[in-house]
Computed example of a mutant assay.
Amino acid sequence: MEEDSSESEKGMWKLSVDGLSCVSESGTGLVLTSPDGWTLEYALRFGFKAKNNEAEWEALIARLTIMKHLQVKKLEVSSDSQLVVGLTSEEYEAREDTMAKYLSHVQSLKSAEF
């Protein structure tokens, strides 16, 4: 018996993330929407100068931390970083040391939570 698409979306949270890196500062913005439709908006400023992809990784780490505290089980995520998405989905291989470290950290966060 197939599950209705609206049935499978019950309990689904939605998260939009976007990392920011510019000359003067870096940070990330997150918008988390509950299954009931209320939203939580986060703006994080990093205490270090992050490159664009590093800002996206930091956004992902913040997301996993928030999920853990809110005990979110189902999540639909959108990100504009093809590199981060490709690495976490194992479509890409981490070639740079920094990217490999971020990937390892994210994998450890995911395995500790679920």
Rank of each mutant, 00 (worst) to 15 (best):
K68P: 03
V72Y: 02
L44Y: 10
G37W: 07
S89E: 05
F46S: 00
L103M: 15
L103N: 11
M67L: 03
E7K: 10
E113A: 14
L20E: 01
L83D: 00
V17W: 00
Y102K: 04
V84Q: 02
N53P: 05
L30S: 04
A94W: 14
A62L: 11
E41K: 10
S26M: 11
T98Y: 13
P35H: 12
G11H: 07
N52K: 08
I61W: 04
K14N: 02
D97K: 05
G86F: 09
T98C: 14
D97G: 05
L40P: 05
V72G: 00
Q82W: 00
W38F: 09
T88A: 12
V72N: 01
A62I: 05
D36I: 01
F48W: 14
K110N: 07
E93K: 06
E2P: 08
S81C: 11
V31F: 10
T33P: 03
S5E: 10
G11N: 10
K14E: 03
F114H: 08
V72E: 01
V72T: 01
K73Y: 05
H105S: 13
G27K: 00
D18L: 03
S78Y: 02
S26D: 08
L83I: 02
A62P: 05
L30I: 11
K49H: 06
S6A: 07
F46H: 02
M12L: 13
G27W: 00
A43Q: 13
S108A: 15
I61S: 04
L109C: 12
T33D: 04
D4V: 09
D80F: 01
L32M: 04
D4K: 03
V106A: 12
S5Y: 13
E91I: 06
K49R: 08
V84A: 05
R63I: 04
D97L: 09
N52W: 05
S104D: 15
E9D: 14
D80L: 01
R45S: 14
L103S: 12
S6Y: 08
K49T: 07
S111D: 07
S108F: 14
S8K: 11
L83M: 02
D80I: 00
K49I: 06
K10L: 09
V85I: 10
I66R: 01
H105Q: 14
V31R: 07
E3H: 12
K74P: 02
R95C: 14
S111Q: 10
S104Y: 13
S111T: 08
K68F: 07
T98N: 14
L109I: 09
L60I: 11
S16N: 14
L44R: 11
L44C: 10
E3F: 12
A59C: 11
S108M: 15
T33H: 08
E2K: 09
W13P: 03
L15Q: 03
A62Y: 06
L83Y: 00
A55I: 04
E7H: 09
W38H: 10
M67I: 01
A112L: 11
L75V: 04
S108I: 15
V23D: 02
C22W: 03
N52L: 08
